[in-house]
Design a protein around this nucleic acid. Structure first.
Lengths: 151, 151
DNA sequence: TCTGCACTTTACGTTAACGTAAACTTGGCG
DNA sequence: CGCCAAGTTTACGTTAACGTAAAGTGCAGA
């Protein structure tokens, strides 16, 4: 299904600075970086997952947006819906101005998400077991074939 | 999103036998067991994921079908499409009559799936890290609020 | 100035994975 | 027998997550 494991390393042009380079991206750059279409990126904005700056009519994406997009795609790979992902992302930066009630609610949601992650981990473990079993059955059948061929 | 972590333990009526009880299920039983609708089960059949026996017009599900359904739902939780799941399931029992070529192909697919699982594991790990960070930020904010309130 | 390219908005189309409704059998049981 | 609950088929509806096409904007270079 999705191949692009990490951003495709668009070679940083030898700017020897530290991390926060205050870089910006066009929609095209970002789309190439993550191997998604511009349309997808605009759709995510429409769904409240991104909120790029505007210079006139065109969108300007900062590091924050890049991180959000990364989180979004990761979430998708784990089978979350965009709505669910937005929920987490909204937590992510609606933090500083949160009152105690909001924050408590956040902790609950976080706990739920954590449980989900644990469940998914278990799913993966079981799935890997199945793969192991199928492979070993597969290999044993192959072995039988070999013996019969050679003997 | 999905809650039902395991089949809802439809109390086995004290039949003290071993595992292969040769039990069968109606579509209703199966649907309650996994908390999906009958419609979903029929749809999975239509998509080639299940192939229940027929007694007249009505479907009879055996252990094999139950296992397949379980695998299917697990796959779904991991974000696989039904088509992808069918691919694995077809491997699963098209084994005995496989020629060497087929079996080699299987091993390739298995390897690919295994890689996918690894990738997903990494995604989960990263996602858990994010959750940790958000939670710790969250807690520190809460602490600040407390101090300010009390002081 | 014209051209081309990257970006924009608007809007309709598409696919997967079911939901929902209608109309029809079928096996028990009071 | 009559009826109900659980099963069936057929078919149209719905939602999420984009794809795709049309038509316009803005600007750098020949």
């Amino acid at each position: 299904m999705p191949k692009p494991r990490q951003e495709a390393m668009a070679s940083p042009p030898a700017t020897g600075a530290l991390k926060p380079q205050r870089r910006t991206y066009s929609i095209g750059e970002l789309s190439r970086l993550f191997e998604v279409t511009p349309r997808t990126i605009r759709f995510y904005e429409q769904e409240g997952l991104l909120a790029p700056e505007r210079r006139g009519q065109t969108r300007i994406y900062h590091e924050k947006d890049r991180v959000r997009l990364k989180l979004t795609l990761r979430g998708k790979r784990l089978g979350f819906t965009l709505a669910e992902i937005r929920e987490v992302i909204e937590l992510y930066d609606a933090m500083p101005d949160g009152n105690a009630r909001q924050l408590q609610r956040m902790l609950e949601i976080l706990s739920a998400k954590r449980a989900e992650m644990q469940a998914r981990l278990e799913d993966i473990r079981l799935m890997q077991q199945e793969l192991d079993e199928v492979e070993s059955r597969c290999r044993s059948v192959l072995e039988q074939l070999d013996r019969h061929d050679v003997t």
